[in-house]
């Protein structure tokens, strides 16, 4: 519906380009990553993203599964008409929330995917008028709430948590630890990027745009989300020593185990829309949307807690998955 309105519009806009990075910055203004000189505003952001550089080998399912790690995907389709490099495809993905799109862009852009390198960019030109209106409203609300809560001094490291939580939790304290990677483990849902290990906060170039992912979920009035965040945030000190998700799992294994787990969940629960035959995750995902806390240890904790909760919910769920994965890997 929304997407079809814009179907005829496949222009290549300037904001799709990967701009040249700036190499003339003095040391004190260097950020964590090389970046172009560019100003981010809400106008450039969107819950619609375009993924370029997807190898044309029939991996749409895998791509959408990967996207879904960052939040519920509402719609997606290949953009056949959009100019693509040889042997690659371009996809349009519409997330339910802007924050998910932001996390997906941040984590997926520039990563390799089945031998290709993904380029992920926002495509606000696919928005409807209503999309644009809501985007601006959400942003205004978010800023107003954030500045209202600002009376308390907010440490830079608090980003993983809602601002409202700051007074009650000690998260900032914990997340400022130098982070050690936990031992590798098979049961892992989320992709981690090593460069995040040392850098839990925004950089010196003010690219906060992507650095406030977690807190910006605040304006979305989804009560369940917020309350569960509240539960999760103060948790690290209780659980972090048990350690959780590992960092490296071969991608195929990772995707296979995910798929298998989803299929099992479809059998187990009623919440799920599609059968095994409908391979694609599509709009409604069996998983809660990925919360990117912008902090490795918090992310780890989130996935640990989710894992634990799953275990509690359905005891046989977790173990079989792990057992099944192993033989498959040896092959």
């Amino acid at each position: 519906c929304d997407l079809s309105v814009a179907r005829l519009d496949h222009k290549v806009y300037k904001h799709h380009e990967q701009r040249k990075v700036c190499i003339s910055r003095p040391k004190y203004r260097e950020g964590r990553r090389a970046k172009a000189v560019k100003v981010y505003t809400i106008n450039l952001e969107s819950r619609h993203v375009m993924v370029q550089g997807v190898p044309a080998i029939g991996v749409m399912t895998e791509l959408i599964q990967l996207c879904a790690l960052y939040g519920a995907v509402e719609e997606y389709r290949p953009l056949d008409e959009y100019p693509a490099e040889e042997f690659t495809e371009v996809y349009l993905v519409k997330f339910q929330k802007l924050t998910s799109a932001r996390a997906a862009k941040r984590h997926m852009n520039g990563t390799s995917f089945y031998g290709g390198v993904l380029h992920v960019c926002y495509v606000p030109e696919y928005e409807t008028v209503e999309d644009t209106r809501m985007k601006l409203q959400d942003r205004r609300r978010y800023v107003i709430r954030a500045v209202q809560n600002k009376e308390m001094v907010i440490p830079a490291h608090d980003k993983p948590c809602d601002r409202e939580n700051t007074e009650t939790s000690n998260v900032s304290h914990y997340s400022s630890f130098p982070l050690l990677p936990p031992p590798p483990q098979e049961y892992q849902y989320y992709r981690h990027k090593t460069q995040h290990l040392a850098a839990p906060t925004e950089d010196r170039m003010g690219t906060l745009h992507s650095a406030i992912i977690a807190s910006e979920q605040q304006p979305v009035p989804s009560s369940s989300q917020t309350s569960s965040d509240r539960v999760r945030c103060p948790e690290p000190r209780l659980t972090s020593n048990q350690s959780a998700a590992g960092r490296f799992v071969p991608r195929t294994t990772h995707l296979e185990s995910r798929k298998r787990r989803m299929e099992e969940e479809t059998e187990h629960s009623l919440t799920n829309v599609t059968r095994k035959t409908a391979l694609l995750i599509g709009p409604k995902l069996p998983e809660p949307p990925k919360v990117d806390m912008e902090d490795e240890s918090l992310n780890t904790t989130v996935s640990l807690i989710r894992g634990t909760m799953k275990k509690v919910e359905s005891v046989p769920d977790l173990k079989p998955v792990e057992k099944k994965v192993k033989p498959r890997r040896r092959i």
Binding site: C22, S24, R25, V39, E202, M205, G206
Partner: peptide, 15 residues
């Protein structure tokens, strides 16, 4: 460059 930096810092309400 500095101007772009400042404009980007303006994105975060805490600044």
């Amino acid at each position: 460059q500095v101007l772009a930096n400042l404009a980007n810092f303006a994105y975060d309400p805490k600044n």
